[in-house]
Design a protein around this nucleic acid. Structure first.
Lengths: 248, 248
DNA sequence: TTATAAGTTGCAAATAACCGCATGTTTATA
DNA sequence: TATAAACATGCGGTTATTTGCAACTTATAA
């Protein structure tokens, strides 16, 4: 077994599985682990793989680490574009605080004259340069985790106003469990927000579709619109379509 | 399962949900929570995530609004340092939204356990990584100019609470006219804030000393402390000292 | 406040990596 | 062809890393 052959085999394995273990390779190729280690070293030196303790990984596996900005920006931008279509001048809009909502506010046309109520300081700041938009920041205890205002103060406030439309991102949505989230405070909040709005828009990147979090926010029946980065006709969304949710 | 694989998985989860719980990860990856904790530590050390009690958070939207161009930063930092000395654990602190206040919050020691009420989203965000600080964001109409919440809602809210100490930056202060400002909304607001606090701290870079704005906020008699970037014994401050204001 | 969850520290076991060296193998050249 | 030089490989001994556990401290939330 020549060195080159081993290298080829290793590369192949990595392309196949995105990772290899030194021990496995030693067995498979019937050489000592030291040899494998030396092989992996060389492949690492020549930037073909990434050596790690215990084996090696594909380079593509390693690169995403340096993502600088928001995850799945493109998907979120796509969602934002569609979501904006639901906003008409003069509306009272209520928003949560996720990155998708932020993308949306960033992409909001300058000529839309709406009143935006939000629990997210970031959303408020984002809208600061929109001359026609009135921003009401709903105050309360500021949650360090989720970067939005939470607590009974917010919930009480929401009882007093009725909004035209509410835009929420979500951490989990599924046919069986509806909209779910993992933070108790956020769940309380979202429930209040949903009750305060005539229409509910859930925005969800396709990757999060059909995932379930610990706590229930609302059943699918309450969701008027579901916006994903997928084509609305996509089969993945069939079940949601059948539930009577408008897809975008 | 290689360590890097876990790391990749964790990063992905965080990008997906903006947060992860150690316990969930331990279950999902079938390793002990200790291991997860160590993983999160490493990812935090390498600035890829933000470790918090119980799990970790996404870093992606933590400080998107970095102010790079603060005027007279050094002077403001000096003021911030002195101002912090006035805060004791357990206090109810009220703050405005100027850049000096922001500097102050940035420099706040991690071991101070206080409750900070603020009308500034930026101050709230700044304090997000302060474990011992409870932040209450006072909501209302968001002023695009001054980047703080203004309006009757805020003023009403301030009527209901009494604070230990209030920190305000100012655009104008002089012996003859006291504290002055140029924006009607802000003036209303500051008056309410001053009334709601037992003690008032005015922070002012020396450049703005003895300058007068259009509208009156409060007379010097209401000012308990004046903090500038000057030495407290500086002659420029003589007149203020004679008025009985404590200088720092 | 107190009960519970999370974090910390130190430690031990398992595994992986490293180092030097001996033993082959291949290659280059007299 | 003979022979040295360079290379490749495996092995023993040692060191470093990873991981889980237990005892203890700290933080969080009701």
């Amino acid at each position: 077994m020549l060195k080159k052959e081993r290298h080829a085999f290793i590369i192949k394995q990595i392309n196949l599985h995105n990772k290899v273990l030194s021990a496995d390779l030693a067995t498979a190729l019937n050489v000592s682990e030291d040899t494998i280690r030396r092989d992996l070293m060389e492949l690492d030196d020549s930037r073909q793989i990434v050596k790690v303790h215990g084996g090696a990984l594909s380079k593509s596996f390693h690169y995403p680490f340096q993502q600088t900005d928001i995850y799945a920006v493109d998907a979120k931008k796509a969602i934002a574009r569609k979501a904006i279509g639901l906003i008409k001048s003069g509306m009272m809009v209520l928003t949560g605080g996720g990155t998708t909502v932020l993308e949306m506010m960033q992409a909001l046309p300058q000529n839309l004259a709406v009143t935006v109520f939000t629990i997210s300081p970031l959303v408020a700041l984002q809208l600061a340069d929109h001359p026609l938009v009135t921003v009401i920041l709903i105050g309360g205890e500021f949650s360090k985790d989720s970067q939005v205002c939470v607590g009974s103060q917010v919930v009480n406030y929401l009882h007093e106003i009725k909004f035209d439309i509410c835009f929420l991102g979500t951490n989990g949505i599924s046919i069986a469990d509806g909209v779910t989230d993992s933070d108790l405070n956020i769940v309380h909040l979202k429930k209040a927000m949903i009750n305060a709005s005539n229409r509910l828009v859930i925005m969800c990147i396709s990757e999060k579709l059909n995932s379930v979090q610990r706590m229930n926010v609302c059943p699918l029946a309450k969701v008027d619109y579901l916006i994903t980065d997928l084509d609305p006709d996509n089969q993945v969304l069939n079940d949601y379509r059948e539930k009577g949710i408008q897809l975008y």
